[in-house]
Each structure stands twice: as C-alpha cells, then as structure tokens.
C-alpha cells in the first residue's frame, strides 16, 4: 500500500511540475509566490516578522492556495484528459490512488509553506542584521509548520471531494475558489460594516487573546476536520461511479 501511494505521489509530482505547460513556467510561478511570502513581506516587516506570530501565521497560508490548483486537477483533470479509466483499470487499490493524490498535493503545498517560513527568517537576518541571528520562537515556528500541514491536508481532502464530483478541472477550481473566497473574504467584508460599538470591543478582545491557546484551538479544529474529510473522501471514492460520471 505504501509503495503504491509513493508511486502515485511520484507520478503526481511529475504532472504538477508540468501543470502550467512546462517545468520552467511552473518554477517561475512558484518563485513569485515564494518570493512574495518568503522575501518581500519579511523584508517589509523586519524583525517583527519573527517576533509577531500574526504575520507568519497569516502568510504561511499563502502557498497553500497552490494546493487548490493541484488538487482541483487530481480527478477532474484525469477525467478530462481521459486518463482516469486506465488508471482505475490498473492494479492500484482505491486507497492508494486517493491517498496518493491527496499526499502529493499536501507535500507540494506544505513543502513550499515550510520553505517560505524558513526563507522569511533568512530574509530578515540578511536585510536587518543586528549582530545576532534571529529566529522565530520555537512554539511559533513549530505551530506554523503544523498549521500549514493541517491546512494543506484539509484543502487537499476538500479539493479531492470537489474534484471527484466535477467534470473538468476548471469547474472544480471555480467551486473551490468560491468556497475559499467566502471563507476568507466574507469575515473581512463583514468587519467593515460592523458598527463601531461592536468593532472596538472585538479588537480589544482579540488583542487580549492568548495566541498559543488560539493556535491550539485551531489545530484541534483542523485535526478533527481532516479526519472527517478524509473519511468522507474515502467513502465517496467508488470506481464505478467515477467511470460512469
């Protein structure tokens, strides 16, 4: 089973790096994202990037949106390009195909997130060197690494579910983009329209929050959501349904 999952991951990675037509164009796209989140923002914020957990926790999510593009293509893309039936007619077990695709998307997004976090520390030290090497507090660093992993896994599991039921990659991507826009933008927009008497106390409450507790809560929520989504994805994966869809 593990060997089969690794085989699937290998194939997925080869396809991911050709997703934008050529290896070069995919790498260029990645460099822009890593450059923004790992160089531009840390350089702007300086040492605050390393000491204030809000920056890293916010921007370490950015590469995870890459996962959306990859995972949208997972089944819908194979169906669109008529490769799915041949894959399903192979000896690979259902779970190896499903978990292989999820793992590849997670590894891709997560590795870029970790790279970005580490690059952020390097950038701050190079641009704002003050005689000693600075790094994130270890709790923040490991929290961000764990959070980005769990977030990548959640996005991948949800994405695979969407991709399983979409006829094209574009359709899957649109569905996911809509969901994530609502998830990310709606709270921000709502905040603009809230009356001042609510916003003021809200900001005060947020500033008093214990971020370790918040991160722990978020991690617990993500773990539960991941277990649920993985279980749901496994139960939804049926060869006959995939072929007839």
């Amino acid at each position: 089973m593990i060997t089969d999952i690794i085989t699937m991951i290998g194939k997925e990675f080869k396809e991911i790096f050709m997703l934008r037509g050529s290896f070069r164009s995919t790498v260029m796209n990645l460099l822009i994202i890593v450059g923004m989140a790992g160089v531009f923002f840390p350089a702007q914020m300086g040492p605050l990037w390393l000491t204030n957990p809000v920056g890293i926790l916010t921007w370490s999510w950015l590469p995870l949106f890459l996962v959306m593009g990859v995972v949208a293509d997972s089944f819908a893309g194979e169906r669109e390009r008529h490769t799915l039936e041949t894959l399903l007619a192979s000896r690979l077990p259902d779970r190896a195909i499903l978990l292989g695709k999820i793992s590849a998307a997670v590894l891709y997004g997560w590795s870029i997130a970790v790279l970005t976090i580490l690059l952020g520390a390097v950038t701050v030290n190079v641009m704002h060197f003050s005689g000693q090497i600075l790094f994130y507090p270890l709790v923040t660093f490991f929290g961000a690494v764990l959070l980005s992993f769990l977030a990548a896994l959640l996005i991948s599991s949800i994405g695979v579910l969407v991709s399983l039921s979409s006829s094209t990659t574009r359709q899957a991507y649109q569905k996911m983009s809509m969901a994530f826009l609502i998830f990310w933008l709606l709270p921000t927009l709502l905040l603009q329209f809230l009356p001042a008497k609510i916003v003021g106390p809200l900001i005060q409450t947020l500033s008093r929050l214990n971020w370790t507790q918040v991160a722990t809560g978020v991690i617990a929520f993500l773990v539960a959501a991941n277990v649920l989504m993985l279980f749901f994805a496994i139960s939804r994966f049926r060869r006959d349904r995939l072929i007839l869809d």
């Binding site: 080869k14 050709m18 997703l19 008529h82 490769t83 039936e85 041949t86 007619a89």
Partner: peptide, 14 residues
C-alpha cells in the same frame, strides 16, 4: 490483466 481501453489513457504532459 493489461488494458487498452476506449482512450489511450496516456499522460500527455509526460
């Protein structure tokens, strides 16, 4: 078994 189905099923980007 081996199978060549309705479509070639090849990964054209590879």
């Amino acid at each position: 078994c081996g199978a060549l189905l309705e479509h070639t099923g090849l990964y054209e980007r590879l």
